[in-house]
Design a protein around this nucleic acid. Structure first.
Length: 861
RNA sequence: GCCGCGAUAGCUCAGUGGUAGAGCGCAUCCUUGGUAAGGCUGAGGUCCAGGGUUCGAAUCCCUGUCGUGGCACCA
C-alpha cells in the first residue's frame, strides 16, 4: 500500500497537462463557449493566499465547464504598469521594466504550480509594447469619437505619489494607494467622457442579473442619477452683470416650491465671485468657506454658515414673492447648478440653516392624518409621504403628482425643464508617471495638441529612464519627448503624461480573444468568446475597474470594435483570506509560523515556538504584511501539497465570504486527500461483478453516488463550492463504511461506479489527486478531458420516505410511505398507526395536513 | 443621514415554511506494521431578542440589539 505523495504526483500531472496542451482554448463552433476570467494580478513578485483563492475559484468553474462539454477560454495576464515598480526603482535603483518582468517570471512559476487549467499561450503583460501600442490605437479611436478630451480643471493631486487621481481613486479625501490627503489643483488634464454613458451605465445594470446585487447598488449610487427640475429665478430689480438670464438652480423636490424661503449658492459660484468683487465682507466669508477641510469628519461637524448677499429673486410662480440669495458653505459648485432653493420644512440642511438665520419654515407636505391647522415643523423636517398644501395650484396632490405638475407649469412658463443630474464625473486618465502607457499625442507650438497617426505607433517608453529623484522621469528624459509635429513637420514635444493603469485593465479581456492580432481587438474572435461568462475578483473593484471596463466596452461597441455592450455577463466577488493575529506581550506582531496554539478544553492560548513565551491572540483580520498574519502559499504547498491548499480555501466558507486560514483546517484537507487515495488504492482492479449476494449495500452505495453527483453538480452551478465539498466528505465516510475488503460482487461493482464518479467530481477542486485516482480506477485518458459524470434522477430519490407526524404542530411519531404517495393514502397510513391513534385518544380530528414526501400534521382538539 | 449584508454547535458554515445539519475541533475507548498516524463511539444548540402571520417559524412580516460593507452637506 503506497502512501499518497503529492510531491511526486502533482508535478507529474502538471507536466502531462502541459505536454498534451490540455487547456488550449479552441474556437469550436460545434460547442457552446464559456469564458471564465479572474481579475488579472499585479506582478508584485509574490503569490499570496488571496491569489490562491481567486484562481482556485476560477479553476473550479473552468474545469467543470470543460467537463460539461463547453469550449472554455481561461487565460492569464499581468496588470503590469503602476507605481510599485517606480517606487522600487527609486528605492533600490533598479530598472522598473526589469523589476516587473522578473516579478512576472517568479509569479508565473508560482501560479503554474497551482495546477490551474489556463491557456498559457495567450499570456501577455500590459507593459508589453505589443499591448500598450494597441491601447494607444484605441486611445486615438476614442479621441476621434470625441470621447477623450483635454481641459483645465480642478483635479485631485496626490502629493506623495505626485500624480493626479480620478474621483474613484480618492477615498475619504485620501489617495487610494498612498493614503495621503489629496489636494485640489487646477491642471490641464486628459479626460474620458464617461458621463456620456451615465444613463446607459445605470440602465444596463438591470440586465446584469448574474452580478451581485451589492455591486449593482454600489455602481448605481456612484453614478448617482437623480431626476428633477432645472429652472431659473428672475432677479427682483436689475440683474447683476452676466446674469441676464436669471439664476439657475436644480432641485429634486419641485413639489415643495411653495415652501421655499431662501436661495443658496456655492462659495465659488460666479455670482458669489461677482458679489465679492464689490463687498469685502462677502470676500472674507468666501475665503472662510474655502478654508474648510474636505475630510469626512470636518464635513460632518461643520456648521451651516451663510452670507446674505442682499440680492433678491422672484418666486417663479408668484413674481410678487421675493426670496433672498445667500452664499452658503454647504452648497457644492460641481453638483447640479451650484445653486439651490431652500425648503426648510422638508430638508434637514435647509432647516438647520433657516433656524440659524431666522428664515421662515413653511410646511407644504401634510403627513396623512395630520390637521393642517396644527401641523408644525420642530427640529426635524418632514420627509415622508403626504398631501401637498399651502401650495395654490398644487394643493391636494400627492408628492409625485405635484412634481409632475410643477415641472409642467415651469416648462409652460419657459423658465425651466425636467432634468437628469449625475454625481458621476468624467474620468481623469492622465498620470504624471513614467511607468505607464504613453499618451500618443504631441504638443506643437503652431498646431497645439496633435494626435499621432496610427503609423507612428507604438510610442514606446525609453529604456534608459532615470528614477533617482521624485517626479515624472519621462518628462526629465533628455531626448524622448523631442519629436516633430505630424501636421506641420515643425518641432514638437511628446505628451509626457501616461494613462491611468485602469485604462490598461478596461479592455484586456477583449485582447485575450486573440492576443496576437494586428488590430487591438480581433472582432471575429471577440464575437466568439465575449462576453466573459464568469468574472471573478475582489469587491474592492466594485466601482473602479468594473465601471471603467463597462464604459470602455460600450464606447468600443459604438465604434464597431466590439459586438457586446457589457463585458462581464456574470460577476462573482470573492471574500478575502483572513488569519488570526498574534502579538508579543510587548505588542510586536508575530508571524503564524513562529507561534504555537495550544487548545485546553474550550480555551485556546498561544506561545512562541522558540522559547515558549506567552503570545496574545488577536482578532481575525485580512492577511497583510503590516499585521504579519500571512501564510506563504509555497510553504503550504511544500508540506501538504497544492491540492490540500486548494481544497481548504475552497471548502472553508462560501466563496463570497471571507475565508479564515488555519493550520488545523489545511491539515483536515490534507487528511481528506490521503483518505481519498486510500479508498481508491484499496479497490481491486476491474469493475467488479454485479452478480451475487450483498445487494442491499450495493444499492445504497449506488443511490448515494447518484445523489452525490447531483448535489456536487448543483453546488458548483450555484457557486456553493464549500457545500459541494462537504457532500464529498460525507460520501467518503459512506464508502469507508462499505469497504472493498470482503465486499460482495455487487458492492464492488457499486464501489467501482462510485469511485469513477468520485474521481471526476473532485477534479475541479483537487485536480492532481483526481488524475491519480482516475488512472487507478482505469478511467480512459486524463480526467481533465473526461466528461462530467451523469446521474440517474430516479436513483437520487429514495423509494420509501419516512414522514414525521405532528399533532398540533408537535412531533408525535413517524410513518413510512412510498415516495410520491397521495395525500389520501398517507392519511390512511397515519390514522391506522397505533402509536398515532394513542396520541389522538379523546381528541376530535379537525384537519389532516399532508405535505407529500415531507410531513403530516394533524390538527385536533 | 441613505442603501445593503450578517447573527444557527467551541470554530467555519449549510439549511429559507414541515424531523435542527456538515466539516473541523473536543471527549471516551480501540489500534500502534497506514505512524509528521488510523479507527469506533459520544457530548455539545434559548437557531441574537421581542412581537405578528400560520395547523406548523431557524425560515415569512414588523420592531429592536450587536457586527459589518458602500454612499453621503448631492439640493
Amino acid at each position: 500500500m503506497a502512501r499518497y505523495n503529492p510531491k511526486e504526483t502533482e508535478p507529474k500531472w502538471r507536466k502531462a497537462w502541459a505536454d498534451t496542451d490540455a487547456f488550449r482554448a479552441v474556437m469550436d463552433p460545434s460547442k457552446p463557449k464559456y469564458y471564465v476570467l479572474e481579475m488579472f494580478p499585479y506582478p508584485s513578485g509574490r503569490l499570496h493566499m488571496g491569489h490562491v483563492r481567486n484562481y482556485a475559484l476560477g479553476d473550479v468553474i473552468a474545469r467543470f465547464k470543460r467537463a460539461r462539454g463547453f469550449s472554455v477560454l481561461h487565460p492569464m495576464g499581468w496588470d503590469a504598469f503602476g507605481l510599485p515598480a517606480e517606487n522600487a526603482a527609486m528605492e533600490r535603483g533598479v530598472d522598473p521594466k526589469g523589476w516587473t518582468y522578473d516579478n512576472i517570471a517568479r509569479m508565473r512559476a508560482e501560479l503554474k504550480e497551482l495546477g490551474l487549467s489556463i491557456d498559457w499561450s495567450r499570456e501577455f503583460a500590459t507593459c508589453d509594447v505589443a499591448y500598450y501600442g494597441q491601447q494607444q490605437a484605441l486611445f486615438l479611436d476614442l479621441f476621434a469619437r470625441g470621447l477623450v478630451y483635454r481641459r483645465e480643471g480642478m483635479v485631485n493631486w496626490d502629493p506623495v505619489d505626485m500624480t493626479v487621481l480620478a474621483n474613484e481613486q480618492v477615498v475619504d479625501g485620501r489617495g487610494w494607494r498612498s493614503g495621503a490627503v489629496v489636494e485640489k489643483r487646477k491642471l490641464n488634464q486628459w479626460f474620458m467622457r464617461i458621463t456620456n454613458y451615465a444613463d446607459q451605465l445605470t440602465d444596463d445594470l438591470a440586465t446584469l442579473d448574474r452580478w451581485p446585487e451589492k455591486v449593482r447598488v454600489m455602481q448605481e449610487n456612484w453614478i448617482g442619477r437623480s431626476k428633477g427640475l432645472t429652472f431659473s429665478f428672475e432677479f427682483a430689480g436689475e440683474p447683476p452683470r452676466g446674469f441676464d438670464k436669471g439664476l439657475e438652480v436644480y432641485t429634486t423636490r419641485p413639489d415643495t416650491l411653495f415652501g421655499a424661503s431662501f436661495v443658496a449658492i456655492a462659495a465659488d459660484h460666479p455670482l458669489a465671485e461677482r458679489v465679492a468683487a464689490a463687498d469685502v465682507a462677502a470676500q472674507a466669508f468666501i475665503a472662510e468657506c474655502k478654508k474648510g477641510g474636505a475630510s469626512q469628519a470636518e464635513i460632518d461637524t461643520a456648521e451651516k454658515l451663510g452670507f446674505d448677499t442682499g440680492i433678491r429673486v422672484k418666486h417663479p410662480f408668484d413674481p410678487s414673492w421675493e426670496l433672498p440669495i445667500w452664499i452658503a458653505n454647504f452648497v457644492l459648485m460641481d453638483y447640479g447648478a451650484g445653486a439651490l432653493f431652500g425648503c426648510p420644512a422638508h430638508d434637514q440642511r435647509d432647516l438647520d440653516f433657516a433656524h440659524k438665520y431666522k428664515l421662515p419654515v413653511t410646511p407644504v407636505v401634510l403627513p396623512p392624518g395630520e390637521d393642517p391647522e396644527t401641523f408644525a415643523i420642530g427640529d426635524e423636517p418632514y420627509l415622508g409621504p403626504g398631501t401637498i398644501y399651502h401650495s395654490r395650484f398644487l394643493d391636494g396632490l400627492d408628492i409625485e403628482a405635484a412634481k409632475t405638475a410643477a415641472i409642467a407649469r415651469m416648462e409652460e412658463l419657459g423658465q425651466g425643464q425636467g432634468a437628469t443630474v449625475f454625481r458621476l464625473r468624467d474620468w481623469g486618465v492622465a498620470r504624471q508617471r513614467a511607468w505607464g502607457c504613453p499618451i500618443p499625442v504631441v504638443h506643437c507650438d503652431k498646431d497645439g495638441v496633435v494626435p499621432l497617426p496610427r503609423s507612428a505607433l507604438p510610442v514606446a517608453l525609453p529604456d534608459d529612464l532615470e528614477f533617482g529623484k521624485p517626479g515624472n522621469a519621462l518628462a526629465r528624459h533628455p531626448t524622448w519627448k523631442h519629436t516633430i509635429c505630424p501636421r506641420c513637420g515643425g518641432p514638437a514635444t511628446r505628451e509626457v503624461d501616461t494613462l491611468d493603469t485602469f485604462v490598461d485593465s478596461s479592455w484586456y479581456f477583449a485582447r485575450f480573444a486573440n492576443p496576437d492580432a494586428a488590430e487591438p481587438i480581433d472582432k471575429q474572435a471577440a464575437d466568439y468568446w465575449l462576453p466573459v461568462d464568469q468574472y471573478i475578483g475582489g469587491i474592492e473593484h466594485a466601482v473602479l475597474h468594473l465601471l471603467y471596463a463597462r464604459f470602455v466596452t460600450k464606447a468600443l461597441a459604438d465604434d464597431g470594435q466590439l459586438g457586446v455592450r457589457e463585458p462581464f455577463a456574470g460577476l462573482f466577488t470573492q471574500g478575502m483570506v483572513t488569519h488570526e493575529t498574534y502579538r508579543r506581550q510587548s505588542g510586536e506582531w508575530l508571524e503564524p509560523k513562529d507561534v504555537e496554539v495550544i487548545v485546553e478544553g474550550k480555551a485556546r492560548r498561544a506561545r512562541l515556538v522558540e522559547n515558549g513565551a506567552e503570545v496574545v491572540i488577536g482578532d481575525v483580520e485580512k492577511m497583510s504584511k503590516s499585521k504579519r498574519n500571512t501564510v506563504a502559499p509555497e510553504e503550504i504547498f511544500d508540506v501538504y501539497g497544492v491540492d490540500a491548499a486548494r481544497l481548504f480555501v475552497l471548502s472553508d466558507s462560501p466563496p463570497e465570504r471571507d475565508a479564515q486560514w488555519s493550520n488545523a483546517g489545511v491539515q483536515g484537507a490534507w487528511r481528506f486527500v490521503n483518505r481519498v487515495w486510500e479508498e481508491f488504492d484499496s479497490q481491486p482492479d476491474g469493475a467488479g461483478s454485479p452478480t451475487g449476494g450483498g445487494g442491499e449495500a450495493a444499492v445504497a452505495v449506488r443511490r448515494a453516488t447518484h445523489k452525490l453527483t447531483r448535489q456536487v453538480t448543483e453546488a458548483i452551478d450555484t457557486f456553493r463550492f464549500n457545500s459541494g465539498i462537504a457532500r464529498l466528505y460525507e460520501f467518503l465516510n459512506l464508502l469507508k463504511a462499505n469497504p472493498a475488503a470482503g465486499a460482495s460482487g455487487p458492492l464492488l461493482a457499486a464501489r467501482h461506479e462510485a469511485l469513477s464518479a468520485f474521481a471526476r467530481l473532485i477534479a475541479p477542486f483537487t485536480p492532481h489527486l483526481a488524475e491519480e485516482c482516475w488512472a487507478r480506477v482505469g478511467g480512459g485518458g486524463m480526467v481533465a478531458m473526461a466528461d462530467w459524470p451523469a446521474f440517474d434522477i430516479a436513483l437520487t430519490e429514495d423509494a420509501v420516505r419516512v414522514l414525521p407526524v405532528q399533532v398540533n404542530g408537535k412531533r408525535r411519531g413517524e410513518i413510512s410511505a412510498p415516495a410520491g404517495a397521495s395525500a389520501a393514502d398517507v392519511e390512511k397510513i397515519v390514522l391506522d398507526d397505533p402509536e398515532i391513534a394513542r396520541r389522538l385518544e379523546g381528541l376530535t380530528i379537525r384537519k389532516v395536513i399532508v405535505v407529500p414526501d415531507r410531513i403530516v400534521n394533524i390538527v385536533a382538539a
